[in-house]
């Protein structure tokens, strides 16, 4: 070129790059101090999971064993939580019931997150599918989720597996909408454009750039879904459209104790306490995760 460039701007001398020291990993106390809600929620939830897993070894008896002679006993040395109107041990039933509730909660969270993620990614990336899929999702969302679940249960019959399906169907649209929104904002990000410009294939862009950045909101959403699924399971069981009466679940126990709740409140009380603690734990965990995974807050090292 005919024009030559003068050497160098009058720039300040380049400072030696000072990078902050790398944080050490671990340090349990520090983690608890920074994220108390995750610690408390995780602890309570972990406790519930342990109870559910080790229910047979925690001084329980067969939760379905009938003893008509000893029905509706108040809590005592033999029946720690009392017995119901068929003489079944409520302590055993509540502990075994944790299995159903947690199973339903976790499965619904997993199923609806995975399906919702797939639908959301497709809708966010493929313009033609977007309109169609999102209208279907809108349609599903316009029906109250518990009604949708009841209708489903009426159609496909009572079983734990069907409860999971029924509640998941109602939760999928929420995840799908969330993911689609995140994907739409992510695909406009400069780093996605830079990746396109540097020859990254669409699949790799989704896998490496889009997916990791949608995980944080999805994990948070999954915990809330988990909590609401446990409540929904209890609700369905309570109105007799959920877990079959042969399987103890917190909703079932409460449904059966409903008739006697003014004279024998303990039948409803114990499963209700367990349900409340579990839902609280999951919600605390979700709240904590949201704060911990939020990139805007992550900057405050």
């Amino acid at each position: 070129m005919s024009v030559s460039i003068e050497p160098g701007f009058a720039a300040a001398p380049v400072l030696r790059d000072v990078l902050p020291p790398r944080r050490e990993r671990g340090r349990v106390m520090l983690f608890i101090y920074r994220h108390p809600t995750i610690a408390v929620g995780g602890l309570l939830l972990g406790l519930m999971v342990l109870i559910a897993i080790f229910a047979p070894f925690l001084h329980t008896v067969d939760p379905t064993a009938l003893a008509p002679a000893r029905r509706t006993r108040a809590p005592n040395a033999q029946y720690w939580f009392g017995s119901d109107m068929l003489g079944r041990d409520i302590y055993s039933r509540v502990l075994y019931g944790a299995r159903v509730s947690l199973l339903v909660g976790f499965l619904v969270a997993a199923v609806s997150s995975l399906v919702g993620l797939t639908i959301g990614l497709c809708a966010g990336f493929i313009r033609i599918l977007d309109t169609v899929m999102m209208r279907v999702m809108d349609g599903l969302m316009s029906i109250p989720s518990i009604l949708l679940a009841i209708a489903f249960m009426a159609l496909i019959g009572a079983s734990v597996q069907n409860v999971v399906i029924a509640i998941s169907v109602a939760e999928i649209p929420r995840v799908a909408r969330l993911v689609r929104g995140v994907v739409l904002s992510l695909r406009e990000q400069a780093y996605v454009e830079a990746a396109i410009a540097s020859g990254t294939s669409t699949f790799k862009i989704i896998w490496r750039h889009i997916l990791p950045n949608t995980l944080a909101p999805i994990i948070v959403q999954a915990t809330f879904i988990c909590a609401s699924a446990m409540l929904a399971e209890a609700t369905l069981s309570f109105i007799g459209a959920g877990t079959p009466p042969t399987t103890p679940s917190w909703g079932n126990i409460m449904a059966e104790g409903r008739a006697l709740w003014q004279v024998k409140p303990f039948i409803v009380f114990f499963p209700a306490v367990f349900l409340s603690i579990t839902v609280l734990a999951v919600n605390l965990l979700g709240d904590g995760l949201r704060d911990a995974l939020d990139p805007r807050l992550a900057k405050r090292i």
Binding site: Q189, A190, Y191, A194, A197, S198, P212, N213
Partner: peptide, 19 residues
């Protein structure tokens, strides 16, 4: 794509925060 590359304005949004 190999021969033509780009540098964007915003140094904060042009790098994937999780890479």
């Amino acid at each position: 794509r190999r021969r033509v590359q780009v540098v964007f304005q915003d140094p904060f949004s042009s790098l994937n925060p999780r890479q």
